[in-house]
């Protein structure tokens, strides 16, 4: 499903060359729940950006669902994000001017789904995350946990093959964070591929597979054997 072949990402900061990713080779298969863990500056965010098709590698090949996406253009990447990926962010990243329903509809809008169908799908995923009664609320009227549920619903709305969660519990208290993680485990059991990016071992432990990144390299991968 996700296949990294010797991925390098190099940033030129003035005269210095920063190797954010330094030769990563990685396989994540369908229905896996994997956690990418690392300290800040380890390269895990860069890794997630590339997995999420927000960025392209400097060197190496990235195959997503068998398609080489290493040198696609902006708009082609946007289309892949829209159809294949669902994002869950630490800061929820809901659009404050739009209500819950409109936020959840957004990926479908860019997919070109008709309005009537969009509402049906959005309502369905809101029901799934248990927050359908808040559909007309504005994000600012919701608690952190509720906002994160809305953002999960938004990630699910486009029916993506991969859900990418960047520190999904980072802004939540322990209890709510646990609930969110349990919900993600449930989603995984239902057959969704989930990738967690975190610096927190307690969070990473919820995943079946832990990939540890340090200095742009994979230093530990609990699932490598299983993947083979």
């Amino acid at each position: 499903m996700i296949r990294f072949e010797n991925i390098h990402k190099i940033y030129n900061m003035g005269e210095n060359e920063v190797r954010a990713l330094d030769g990563i080779t990685l396989d994540i298969r369908e229905k896996e729940m994997a956690a990418i863990i690392g300290q800040s500056g380890s390269g895990k965010s860069t890794c997630m950006n590339i997995i999420g098709c927000l960025d392209v590698p400097t060197e190496g090949k990235y195959y997503l669902n068998g398609r080489d996406v290493s040198d696609l253009k902006d708009d082609e990447l946007a289309e892949i994000r829209n159809k294949t990926l669902g994002f869950i962010f630490q800061q929820y990243n809901l659009i404050p001017k739009l209500n819950v329903l409109e936020n959840v509809e957004l990926p479908l809008v860019y997919k070109g789904v008709l309005e009537k169908d969009r509402i049906d799908i959005a309502m369905e995923v809101l029901k799934k995350v248990g927050i359908e009664e808040k559909r007309n609320s504005m994000p600012s009227q919701l608690s952190g946990g509720q906002q994160q549920r809305v953002s999960i619903a938004r990630a699910l709305a486009g029916n993506p093959s991969i859900i990418l969660a960047d520190e999904p519990t980072g802004a939540l208290d322990t209890k709510t964070g646990q609930e969110v993680l349990e919900f993600m485990q449930q989603l995984n059991e239902e057959g969704n591929t989930i990738i967690l990016i975190t610096h927190d071992m307690l969070v990473a432990e919820k995943a079946k597979r832990i990939i540890r990144i340090s200095d742009g390299k994979i230093v530990e991968d609990s699932g490598r054997e299983a993947a083979k």
């Binding site: 927000l54 902006d74 708009d75 994000r81 159809k83 990243n93 659009i95 001017k97 990926p107 860019y110």
Partner: peptide, 16 residues
């Protein structure tokens, strides 16, 4: 800017 980033991450193309 952030809204634009969110929209783009959700699949908005340049023309959108």
């Amino acid at each position: 800017t952030r809204e634009i980033g969110i929209r783009k991450s959700l699949g908005a193309k340049r023309k959108d």
